[in-house]
């Protein structure tokens, strides 16, 4: 599996400073995304998954936030070292993003056509006519039958599902290499969610786009992802291919998450539940951050922080409860 990596993140730390407190929202995150791969970033609210995504696009508001260290290598260059105008060349062009709530990310006073044409005019320097032509193609691609007449519609006239299609069309306008989708289907109803996920799969297969999918819905993860990264309190706690994560979860947090979802197939009376709540990122526990909620907690977990460790090939877990004969200590080969 030596496919070339598109995005490689090393030791990313994004902290926020509020009321003289240091909030370690993302605290030492490493992962990579290969070309054409869909990686799901899973975790509860406050685990740092959205901050990771915003850091990749360098959209962390400063103050209060700051990327204090790390390296985000995208297509051969460290984007944390780029100047702001160089970064503008990447946003919406090579890396684009879809957000959870499409209404708040579409401008209510511009037509759909104007908004999709904007990145085409800016990045590809297209003239009005060709930009318009491409926009119609894009709208057809995301499933609008009357694409031509959509150009003059305003966002408020569209339903949630249609707005999300427009967002996808806009995000795909410049054929990005990486699409970051932050809870793209969470605000939508199930039947509409199914339409949107289907569309995202089609696009990925057609254009070989890499997708970083951020979600807390494990059903969506199982359906879309090739690889899964589980985050907890600012750190990655488990990483592996989707089958490994669902069939053989290693970290007690991942196990707990999977056990707590009610299933459509099985009949259970009492659901498994992880006790307690995610710790406040400004006041993290010592040792393993999951220790206060962990069923398997040991003395060692309370004062020592476990490292990521490759348990089987490509399946990593940050827990002292590993197989003794496990592969070497945390060392990823890029």
């Amino acid at each position: 599996m030596q496919t070339k990596s598109l995005l490689t993140i090393r030791d990313l730390r994004t902290y926020f400073y509020t009321d003289k407190k240091e909030v370690k929202a993302v605290d030492g995150v490493d992962f990579q995304i290969k070309r054409g791969e869909t990686v799901a970033l899973v975790g509860e609210s406050g685990s740092g998954k959205s901050v990771t995504a915003m850091s990749i696009l360098r959209l962390i508001p400063k103050p209060p936030g700051e990327i204090i260290s790390g390296e985000i290598n995208f297509d051969g260059e460290d984007i944390l070292k780029l100047k702001e105008d160089e970064m503008n060349e990447i946003r919406g062009n090579k890396i684009s993003m879809i957000f959870q709530e499409p209404m708040t990310s579409l401008n209510p006073v511009y037509t759909i056509g104007d908004q999709i044409m904007e990145p085409l005019r800016y990045h590809w320097k297209l003239d009005k006519g060709s930009a318009r032509k491409r926009t119609v193609e894009l709208l057809q691609m995301v499933g609008f039958a009357r694409a031509e007449s959509m150009l003059n519609e305003y966002p408020h006239r569209l339903s949630g599902g249609m707005r999300q299609r427009v967002m996808i069309a806009m995000a795909m306008a410049c054929n990005p290499n990486l699409l970051i989708a932050d809870e793209p289907s969470t605000a939508l109803d199930v039947t509409i969610q199914a339409q949107i996920l289907e569309l995202m799969r089609d696009i990925r297969d057609k254009f070989n786009t890499s997708i970083l999918l951020i979600t807390h819905d494990l059903g969506v993860v199982a359906e879309m992802a090739d690889r899964v990264i589980v985050m907890y309190a600012g750190k990655i706690v488990e990483e592996g291919i989707v089958e490994d994560i669902f069939e053989n979860p290693l970290h007690p947090y991942t196990k707990g998450l999977l056990a707590s979802i009610p299933s459509l197939e099985a009949e259970t009376d009492i659901l498994y539940s992880i006790k307690g709540t995610i710790p406040n990122a400004a006041d993290l526990p010592k040792g393993c951050r999951f220790a206060p909620r962990c069923e398997y907690v040991m003395e060692r977990c309370l004062h020592e922080e476990p490292k990521m460790r490759e348990e089987t090939i490509g399946h990593y877990s940050r827990c002292f409860l590993h197989k003794e004969e496990g592969v070497n200590i945390w060392q990823k080969n890029y």
């Binding site: 339903s159 599902g161 249609m162 109803d189 199930v190 039947t191 509409i192 969610q193 199914a194 339409q195 996920l197 289907e198 819905d217 494990l218 059903g219 969506v220 993860v221 199982a222 359906e223 992802a225 989707v242 089958e243 669902f246 069939e247 999977l258 979802i261 299933s263 459509l264 197939e265």
Partner: peptide, 25 residues
């Protein structure tokens, strides 16, 4: 039927026959 078929299943091995509804409510 379509509502039930649209629910994503948390199991990567299950490939559901999906009835995708067209359009919106």
């Amino acid at each position: 039927q379509s509502l039930l078929s649209a629910v994503p299943v948390p199991n990567p091995k299950v490939k559901k026959e999906r009835i995708i509804l067209q359009g919106d409510v």
